[in-house]
Amino acid sequence: MTEPPKILEAEAEAADENDRLDRFLASRLADLSRTRVQDLIRQGHLIRQDQLSRGGETIRDPKYRVKQGERFALTLPPPEPSGLRAQEIELDIVYEDDQLLVIDKPAGLVVHPGAGNQDGTLVNALLAHCGSELSGIGGVARPGIVHRLDKETSGLLVVAKTDIAHQSLAAQFADHGKTGDMERRYLAVVWGAPPKPAGTVEAPIGRHPTHRTKMAVVKPDRPDAREAVTHYRVLERFVLEDDEKAPFASLVECTLATGRTHQVRLHMAHLGAPLIGDPLYGKGFKSKIRTLPNHLADVAEGLHRQALHAAHLAFIHPTTDEYLAFDSELPADLDKLITAFKEP
């Protein structure tokens, strides 16, 4: 059923005369972004009413200039179905309110349905969990995915429930903390060690020229090159008793200053320290396993995924402006790997 219209009145104290209609309405509807308000106006859902008891005039121009004393009725149609199936899948929900959720995603869970993954994804699970709570993103009843984690990467991920939350979070992730408080930190277990104890990788990323599922560090002047910046520091180096100078592996903390596909995985490989278990960017280092004692080789081979965990996530709440920060402990498989490497 269509929601009853929200009646808004332009008054001298609340809206300056000559204000744009879309800006005026968006400032009074907490769950709608200005883009969504513009769409609703263009679709004919906005009526100007001089007196609420009489018929009104449909206005389809978001740039219409509001005049003092004018009153408007905006009809919010119910969100259109997403076409995706809601599925009851257990989720580790770290935080939830009426605007967003923060999920601690396990390795192996795909975030969004796609070719070969129409079911069993995080989005399918969220559709079941949120149900009618989803106010719709752009008019569609779906959760707002503003960033993704690879299927085999574990850790923290934030999801928007409302249009306004989606818009705010997307802007924060696009900015990546350059002007705000958004922060994403990963823990990675890599072969060997980066060349320096700490540093910054500034290496543009684009599509691999021949491998459709891979990304690559590319020249800045390539048409698809996108800026990619990762700050890193080595937290711990793992060495064997007979070769204490050269670490066979390291635990590295990576902080993103951009958010490109496979960024941490690719940048660590670019430094010559690919992630343990990475099937795309660490294949050439499988021979490393054969140099380890049997018990360490067994643990490394048993990981069955890249050793990458989204351990820290911080951002500003879209509607309360509260600073929210979350930390996720290492999952059991990575904890087992690190524990074994500490005591070779």
Results as ranks from 00 to 15, higher is better:
residue 1 M to H: 14
residue 138 G to W: 09
residue 236 E to N: 11
residue 16 D to R: 15
residue 170 A to P: 00
residue 296 L to R: 04
residue 91 L to W: 06
residue 13 E to S: 15
residue 57 E to Y: 01
residue 51 Q to I: 09
residue 6 K to R: 15
residue 213 T to V: 14
residue 149 L to D: 04
residue 189 V to C: 09
residue 235 L to P: 06
residue 221 D to H: 13
residue 44 G to V: 12
residue 99 Q to I: 00
residue 286 K to E: 15
residue 183 E to Q: 14
residue 49 Q to R: 15
residue 23 R to C: 02
residue 100 L to H: 04
residue 321 D to R: 14
residue 316 I to H: 05
residue 199 G to Q: 09
residue 214 K to L: 07
residue 238 F to H: 05
residue 298 D to Q: 15
residue 146 V to K: 05
residue 271 L to H: 11
residue 46 L to K: 04
residue 327 D to Q: 08
residue 226 R to N: 05
residue 53 S to E: 14
residue 162 T to N: 07
residue 306 Q to K: 07
residue 39 D to R: 15
residue 299 V to N: 10
residue 16 D to K: 15
residue 79 P to T: 10
residue 39 D to C: 11
residue 201 V to Y: 03
residue 71 R to C: 11
residue 343 E to G: 07
residue 137 I to E: 00
residue 252 V to Y: 09
residue 37 V to W: 03
residue 174 A to C: 01
residue 285 F to K: 12
residue 194 P to N: 10
residue 315 F to M: 04
residue 237 R to G: 04
residue 246 A to I: 12
residue 172 Q to W: 00
residue 156 L to R: 07
residue 41 I to Q: 02
residue 39 D to Y: 11
residue 158 V to W: 01
residue 287 S to F: 15
residue 326 F to K: 06
residue 108 G to W: 09
residue 186 Y to I: 02
residue 161 K to L: 05
residue 256 L to W: 01
residue 143 P to M: 10
residue 309 H to V: 02
residue 275 L to N: 03
residue 212 R to P: 15
residue 20 R to C: 06
residue 82 S to H: 04
residue 239 V to Y: 01
residue 115 A to W: 07
residue 216 A to H: 04
residue 332 A to H: 11
residue 188 A to N: 06
residue 234 V to P: 06
residue 163 D to M: 09
residue 179 T to Y: 01
residue 325 A to G: 14
residue 320 T to Q: 14
residue 344 P to W: 06
residue 104 D to Q: 10
residue 66 V to N: 01
residue 11 E to I: 08
residue 206 G to Q: 05
residue 266 L to S: 05
residue 110 V to D: 01
residue 260 R to K: 12
residue 157 L to R: 06
residue 127 L to A: 07
residue 130 C to F: 07
residue 292 L to R: 02
residue 228 A to G: 01
residue 246 A to E: 11
residue 202 E to A: 10
residue 332 A to C: 07
residue 95 Y to M: 02
residue 1 M to Y: 11
residue 140 V to H: 01
residue 234 V to A: 10
residue 225 A to I: 13
residue 116 G to D: 11
residue 127 L to R: 05
residue 40 L to V: 10
residue 186 Y to S: 01
residue 247 P to A: 06
residue 311 A to I: 00
residue 77 P to K: 04
